[in-house]
């Protein structure tokens, strides 16, 4: 039987279909480069011992975050995992806020109270990053239920990994969303590994998300997660379906992470050559070439790269200069009254 690894998508051959348009295409490119630069910087800062705790990078998986976020409108909600920096940034959260949280500074998104695995920015529609595998799928259902109940038009989008398809909450949420016809989109980023174990070694079907879709009456969807255009187009369709009241979608995006699972992981378990093969299909490389096919000049591409680098450089300097959080926030916001009192 073919393993998932054999099924890695082939070279992008999407031709010159200009349904996306130059403005959106440039936004998709810019977003991917921004995620790449910010996370590469996070890794460098970790090597300098300036990023503390753990961190889980999405290097190599940027097309999914960019493609889906560019298809969202204000008010749509993102629910992310601990591997959530890219999804958070893709909704427009400033790089400084994310790096500040990773560096545990007072300028961080949650002033150091949450850390890298829990990035949250409700004003940008980022409704939290969840570190218990599967927990946020039912939560996204609840947000979608509220939209359905109140007649709001927003859609909830829930991102998770291939490993998450084997936990109970995944199956509970899919059935629940399908039965209640909720406006929620489940996006599985299949990067071929759970933590260190290949997903094929522990899953009964080749496509851990898509091959379960039929159990919940949903369409089987597998896409090239390294092609931002394909992610964007698929997202648009799923949003239209959700907004029309036609219920949830489950989308499996094939991709690969360039780094280890977390900062502590050198990823020695990968077979030789696998990373190199996937790097040939680096989403940013693919996209840069596509822009050129569409006639975008080298200078225009370099201008985007330079402006992104400046944002990341400025953010880095701001974070290095920022103080650690003050001790008095230790006991704030345990309860809604702002404090932590549990007795009189």
């Amino acid at each position: 039987m073919a393993t998932i690894r054999d099924r890695a998508p082939g070279p992008a051959g999407s031709g010159l279909n200009d349904d996306i348009g130059e403005q959106k295409r440039l936004a998709l490119y810019r977003s991917q480069v921004r995620l790449r630069e910010a996370e590469q910087r996070a890794f460098d800062l970790f090597l300098q011992n300036l990023v503390k705790g753990t961190s889980h990078l999405s290097l190599g998986q940027e097309a999914i975050a960019a493609g889906f976020a560019e298809a969202m409108v204000k008010g749509d909600l993102s629910f992310c995992t601990y591997r959530g920096h890219a999804h958070t940034l893709a909704r427009g959260v400033p790089v400084e806020k994310v790096l500040g949280e990773l560096m545990q500074r007072d300028n961080g998104l949650m002033r150091g109270k949450g850390g890298s695995m829990h990035l949250t920015s409700e004003e940008h529609g980022v409704m939290g990053s969840y570190a218990i595998i599967g927990a946020h799928l039912p939560i996204a259902c609840g947000a979608a239920w509220r939209a359905q109940y109140k007649g709001d038009k927003d859609v909830s989008v829930c991102f998770f990994g291939d490993g998450t398809t084997n936990i109970g909450a995944f199956h509970e949420a899919l059935n629940f969303a399908a039965v209640w016809k909720l406006p929620v989109i489940f996006v599985c980023e299949n990067n071929l590994y759970m933590e260190y174990t290949p997903i094929g070694d522990v899953t009964a079907v080749p496509h851990p998300a898509a091959d379960r879709a039929s159990a919940y009456g949903l369409e089987r969807i597998v896409i090239d997660g390294n092609d931002a255009d394909e992610c964007y187009r698929t997202a648009q369709k799923a949003f239209a379906k959700a907004r029309a009241g036609a219920g949830p979608s489950l989308i499996e995006c094939m991709t690969y992470r360039h780094s280890g699972h977390s900062r502590a992981d050198p990823a020695k378990y990968r077979p030789e050559g696998e990373l190199e093969r996937w790097k040939l299909r680096d989403p940013i490389k693919i996209y840069r070439e596509r822009l050129k096919q569409f006639g975008v000049s080298d200078a225009a591409i370099e201008a985007i790269d330079a402006s992104v680098r400046k944002e990341v450089d400025d953010a880095t300097e701001a974070c290095k200069a920022a103080p650690p959080p003050p001790l008095d926030i230790l006991t704030t916001d345990v309860y809604a009254d702002g404090g932590w009192a549990w007795r009189n």
Binding site: P138, G142, E172
Partner: peptide, 23 residues
């Protein structure tokens, strides 16, 4: 007033998502 499947995680998770967003 809604009947749910036997899915305790979905019940509590959905309650939380609804609570976070206004119900």
């Amino acid at each position: 007033v809604r009947d749910t499947p036997i899915s305790e995680q979905a019940i509590l998770g959905a309650a939380m998502g609804a609570a976070m967003t206004g119900l």
